[in-house]
């Protein structure tokens, strides 16, 4: 089969060569005829001129000259037509060849671009293998609830993570630990005059700061938790609040996040729900949308710390309870304030 196709191809090639040779021979013959036609016309003109002057039968010479001129013109037109057709065909063929060559060159260019892209890709892969990607723990990179699928995504997460985030996390963790460890000592160290005489707005700010467990929340949330409650209350509200039987929730209301999140905190005995702490709680909640999840742990931690305080200072808590009970009986804040002054 291979020899048959090769022979057929060779025959086709030989036929093509023979046809092209025949065409080129015909073209050259027609060009030679055109060149010879000029001399023939000149010689014919001289002959007819001589015959017209010498011969007596001039009419016959004229008629013969007319016939010859017509035939010569037609022959010239034929020759020129064939030559121009062949030249035009040759030009079209060359243009087609050039178009085919352009196509081949564009194909070669495309292949070369592909090779270049491959080379670039290989180079990038080689260089990327050289670079050491920093490795962090997952909790420092991924948000909560998101899972990782594939190494590429892991790589992109690693690239997206920066040292600032890690620093912030580290600072936040240290701040939380510091507040947790400082809570008993700072509460004990807190002077009564400063806590009692604190203005409501500053108390609100302290409460807000304590309730917002943001990473940058440096002031400890527990520090103002025990004192801010008493200080935030105006006298009228405290009087009204002494009527309510929920006294321990009052103390617990000093915790981090129990008051503002639930609408139940507006107790039935206190008709004024717009306490100075409540309006500030809404923007704080908006400012930290992930607060409830984090404040839960903070609240638990604060309760634990409060329990520790209660264990460590039972006498003080008893005195505080006594003061509150006496306050309920007498409906006056003098004892509480005296106790707080002593405290």
């Amino acid at each position: 089969m291979g020899t048959m196709t090769a022979s057929s191809l060779s025959r086709e090639a030989s036929n093509y060569d023979e046809a092209s040779m025949q065409q080129s021979l015909l073209f050259s013959d027609s060009l030679k005829d055109l060149k010879n036609l000029r001399t023939q016309l000149y010689s014919a003109a001289e002959y007819f001129e001589l015959s017209y002057t010498n011969d007596d039968q001039k009419q016959i010479v004229v008629e013969t000259l007319k016939d010859y001129a017509i035939k010569a013109l037609v022959n010239t037109v034929d020759h020129l037509g064939s030559v121009t057709y062949k030249v035009n065909d040759l030009l079209d063929e060359k243009v087609d060849e050039v178009s085919g060559t352009e196509f081949r060159v564009s194909c070669i260019g495309q292949r070369l671009r592909t090779c270049q892209e491959y080379i670039d890709h290989e180079g990038i892969s080689q260089q990327s293998l050289v670079i050491d990607t920093p490795k962090y723990h997952k909790r420092y990179i991924l948000p909560v609830g998101e899972t990782m699928h594939g190494a590429v995504r892991t790589k992109s997460k690693y690239q997206g993570c920066s040292l600032d985030d890690e620093d912030e996390w580290y600072q936040f963790r240290n701040a939380v630990r510091a507040t947790i460890t400082e809570t008993p000592t700072s509460s004990a160290r807190e002077t009564p005059t400063s806590s009692v005489r604190e203005t409501p707005m500053s108390a609100v700010n302290s409460v807000r700061r304590g309730r917002s467990p943001s990473p940058s929340g440096r002031p400890p949330p527990q520090r103002s938790a025990t004192f801010s409650f008493t200080s935030t209350m105006p006298k009228k509200e405290s009087e009204k609040r002494t009527v309510s039987p929920h006294r321990f929730p009052l103390l617990r209301s000093g915790s981090v996040s129990s008051r503002p999140t639930t609408p139940k905190t507006s107790r039935p005995t206190t008709p004024k729900t717009s306490r100075p702490t409540t309006p500030s709680s809404a923007p704080a909640k908006k400012r930290y949308p992930s607060e409830p999840r984090k404040s839960a742990s903070m609240r638990l931690q604060a309760e634990k710390e409060n329990n520790k305080d209660a264990e460590q200072y039972p006498s003080k808590s008893k005195r505080l309870l006594k003061a509150l009970l006496s306050r309920r009986k007498s409906k006056k804040d003098d004892m509480l304030y005296t106790y707080l002054d002593e405290y």
Binding site: K94, V95, V98, S99, T101, E102, V105
Partner: peptide, 13 residues
């Protein structure tokens, strides 16, 4: 004109 265009194409090629 054909020859000129052909020449231009050949130069480009």
């Amino acid at each position: 004109s054909k020859l000129s265009s052909l020449n231009q194409k050949l130069d480009t090629l």
